[in-house]
């Protein structure tokens, strides 16, 4: 049903992504493609996979940006997937009822047996989180790995999204952002987690932790004192070693 759940879900499951530690390694990108491509959300088809103009469906991508200039400049990697918005226009525009937001935890999903591949939801998502799988003609998006996080057969530690489990820089965190006591909520509070493009009014669930300001060395302008003068450096050494 493309009506948004009313009242809004009590749980808001989502990701918290730390831009301070993401090294842009693309591990989460491929893990996502592989887990979901081989799972209920798959396949995630690729056209011309070995040809001149390859193109494929991916649910998570990592972009490399530079911000600022000169001394203040930095490189920032930006992982981008569905933010599981509370006010998900992608859901309400869907004419078929294929797109929906789960009432229990706020996860936005596509029931691909209903999708007619009109693409409107992708247009309606400002975050570019939706991709059409061209071979099957249906819409795909980040599932928040519902088939992992809710799989009781998995050991508890593994009930997390594939991208989170694999991130070697531990830049991705998963949890309930509606619960102020959850680890992710605390991280967001501590680090000033950002609601991406909040002014658009989508009320995304995911949060991004901004890069910590670098502690530049030159600014510290610290300088080592000369070794005590008496006997010079070697005298100092003698004293240190006692003889």
């Amino acid at each position: 049903m493309t009506a948004l759940p009313d009242p809004p879900p009590a749980r808001r499951l989502g990701l918290v992504i730390d831009l301070d530690t993401c090294v842009g390694c693309q591990a989460c990108v491929v893990a996502c493609k592989e887990w979901n491509g081989g799972g209920p959300a798959g396949p995630l088809g690729d056209l011309e996979p070995w040809g001149a103009a390859p193109s494929g469906a991916w649910l998570n991508r990592v972009h490399g940006f530079e911000v600022g200039e000169g001394e203040a400049g930095r490189t920032v990697y930006f992982p981008r997937s569905c933010l599981h918005c509370e006010n998900a226009l992608c859901v309400t525009v869907c004419p078929t009822g294929a797109s929906y937001k789960r009432a229990e935890d706020g996860i936005v999903l596509v029931d691909e047996s209903k999708c007619m591949g009109c693409g409107l939801c992708a247009w309606a998502c400002p975050y570019g989180a939706r991709e059409l799988d061209r071979p099957s003609g249906v819409m795909k998006k980040c599932t928040l790995c519902v088939d992992r996080i809710g799989d009781e057969r998995l050991p508890a530690a593994e009930r997390e999204p594939a991208c989170v489990a694999t991130c070697p820089a531990r830049a991705r965190h998963f949890g309930d952002l509606a619960d102020p006591e959850s680890a992710v909520s605390r991280l967001v509070a501590e680090r000033g987690g950002v609601e991406l493009l909040a002014e658009l009014g989508y009320r995304p669930t995911n949060r991004y932790l901004p890069p910590r300001p670098g502690r530049r060395l030159a600014a510290s302008a610290e300088r080592l004192e000369d070794a005590p003068a008496e006997g010079g450096f070697l005298g100092w050494l003698d004293r240190l070693l006692g003889g």
């Binding site: 491509g37 081989g38 799972g39 209920p40 798959g42 396949p43 995630l44 088809g45 690729d46 056209l47 011309e48 996979p49 040809g51 494929g56 061209r134 071979p135 099957s136």
Partner: peptide, 10 residues
């Protein structure tokens, strides 16, 4: 020309 890896598992 087209790869639909994963379809087989479904």
């Amino acid at each position: 020309p087209v790869l639909t890896w994963g379809a087989v598992f479904r």
